[in-house]
Design a protein around this nucleic acid. Structure first.
Lengths: 343, 343
DNA sequence: TGGACTTGTCAAAGCGGTTTGGAAAGAGAA
DNA sequence: TTCTCTTTCCAAACCGCTTTGACAAGTCCA
């Protein structure tokens, strides 16, 4: 059923029907009621593509997920983020188009999106230091929201991020307060902005107490279980092992736990661990009331929701000043931290 | 730049340009070359929506992800699956539109997709026993491929699935061969087809050796770390603990591992464990050469790729017989299995 | 040389909406 | 009564592409 047929059914012109459905003021209230009701009864819905073509609004948001060519790690955080965003989209009647793109060819995708106006805006995932995508999107004039941000505080674009510096500063303080001095940092790749900030938060907390950072206790790389395990194992078996770990993801923390178990060490007693927890739906940090790991916590699903809201806001009201949300992480105390062994 | 302008630039009619770009045979090879080259140089790309509208093909595939209303667990498998499918889509020039839908309101989404023809086909994720989506899609005449399948072998629809029965039969046999008799099964929710099949494979292997299944050693539920831990812990502390676990996901297996460690048991010695491994990119089963867990293995990313291929095949060649792929799982021996303690 | 076939190109009619620029009808004012 | 506004609706022009049917030019064969 198309508009013309449906309008014929009602004895109205397509124009009037379109306006009634679109909420325009030029139709009588009674007419509108008649139209919307008939639409429901006959199951009429305007064709998305036709509407998009005619109006210029795509009613769609693009998510571009970069994936490394070599060993494609899809950021697991992504599933939760997108499900948060998806809630907003469906309630606002936007579609979500997803592109999986191998690193580097993102340009092409963005350009195409902008050119064919196939989306009204995009979400930028996993921003990297010196990320080319952001200037590109600005140049293209395509509204966007970044999940995360870039170094240098005040670039004028929308983003939602957590206060990584503060979170890791607080986490480090916690460990320092417990008497730990040899603290290892297992971080994400340092070409990611969040990893740099976490490192900075860690470093400033350490130097704030006059404790030096041992470069041997720093790891930066893919935040996989295997890497967490490998790094922890190496450090713990080294000549001067850490008494505590500060870890950037729960997955990695699980690897650390494996390493400590293999070496007969007990978490929270022999070795302490604080991790960041994205509150992924399928990888809970233990039961609600008794967190497994002490953790800095912020829901990535909530971030997804917020990003979506901001983007739609920016799309519907062009010219709005950039919205920059920086969220505080909660610090939850779990079973993985305790006083330093020889404190 | 639109088609008319671009065609004007070349001194050709829009028709010819469209045909040249579309690969139709009615244009001279030289003309086609001239057109494609100019398109590249000027960065001309046909507007997707306009093309879709005119041709009736949406050039888009829909993925509908159900998410439970209560505590929305987004299947973590999904990220990898979709990245596999995404590869195919981008190489075949299809878009991927994603809908996150709360359980139950899927009908509406599918109907809308069919009605507005906003996608050419859909992928069905996480089929449940008696899933209403499949008859609905058949009724709507929308091409679809199911990742997984339904009970009752030969329903005529496309699917890609692993041979769950065989995989878990083999895994059980392995444990039985090692002398285990008290084997626990930690499974997914039994309203999922794959969980039933795995249970059947397990049960038939057990009864094939005359070993009875203890209902106290059966768990079925969300395949989370927490559930794996809880179930294992409960069973291991019970009066008649299992000597081996057969587990439906790596995440859950990690929970089991935690439980065994807490109780001072060593995996592969005091307790054995075989898990299914979806080869998720961010949750590797240890290093390549030394798997952590003994596992039945099948890449969900590969499944995503294959589903996408099949769907596109069905879309471009309507009337094709249903394609039903059933994949054999590999059984990889890791460090988590060993002879039964008192064997 | 002329008719039948190809081949390469084009004009124009959609696809299913939105939106602009009226027009008819009714209300109020002069 | 006539004129000017509103209000409510409509006809028609797009949006940018695909595709059908027609046509000119070229090829082949009789």
């Amino acid at each position: 059923m198309n508009l013309k047929e449906f309008a014929g059914l009602l004895g109205l012109s397509p124009t009037t029907v379109s306006r009634a459905l679109g909420g325009y003021p030029e139709v009588r209230e009674e007419t509108r009621r008649r139209v919307t009701e008939a639409a429901k009864r006959h199951g009429y819905r305007p064709n998305r593509r036709a509407a998009a073509l005619a109006s210029g609004r795509a009613m769609a948001i693009g998510h571009v997920i970069p994936t490394a060519l070599n060993q494609e790690v899809v950021n697991p955080v992504f599933a939760d983020f997108i499900s948060g965003a998806g809630e907003v989209y469906s309630s606002e009647n936007y579609d979500l188009t997803l592109s999986i793109v191998t690193d580097g060819s993102e340009d092409r995708v963005y350009r195409q999106m902008a050119q064919t106006r196939s989306v009204d805006g995009v979400i930028v995932h996993g921003p990297r230091i010196g990320d080319q995508r952001i200037p590109l999107l600005q140049e293209l004039g395509l509204p966007f929201v970044v999940h995360g941000r870039l170094p240098g505080e005040h670039a004028p674009f929308n983003f939602v991020d957590i206060d990584n510096i503060r979170a890791f500063h607080k986490a480090t303080d916690l460990l320092l307060d417990l008497g730990h001095r040899r603290i290892a940092l297992l971080n994400g790749n340092l070409d990611m902005d969040f990893a740099c900030r976490r490192r900075d938060g860690f470093a400033s907390a350490m130097s704030g107490r006059g404790v030096s950072v041992d470069p041997d206790l720093l790891f930066a790389g893919d935040m996989s279980e295997t890497n967490g395990h490998g790094a922890a194992r190496r450090m713990l078996e080294g000549p001067n092992p850490p008494t505590a770990f500060l870890v950037s993801s729960l997955t990695m923390a699980i690897g650390v736990r494996r390493a400590t178990h293999e070496l007969g060490l007990r978490l929270g007693q022999d070795v302490s661990l604080v991790t960041h927890d994205d509150v992924l739906s399928y990888l809970a940090n233990g039961p609600q009331d008794a967190p497994l790991f002490t953790a800095t916590r912020s829901s990535v699903r909530a971030a997804g929701r917020r990003c979506a809201e901001i983007l739609i806001e920016q799309i519907t009201r062009p010219g709005l000043a950039p919205i920059q949300d920086i969220w505080e992480c909660e610090l939850v105390i779990g079973a993985s931290t305790g006083p330093a062994p020889n404190a």
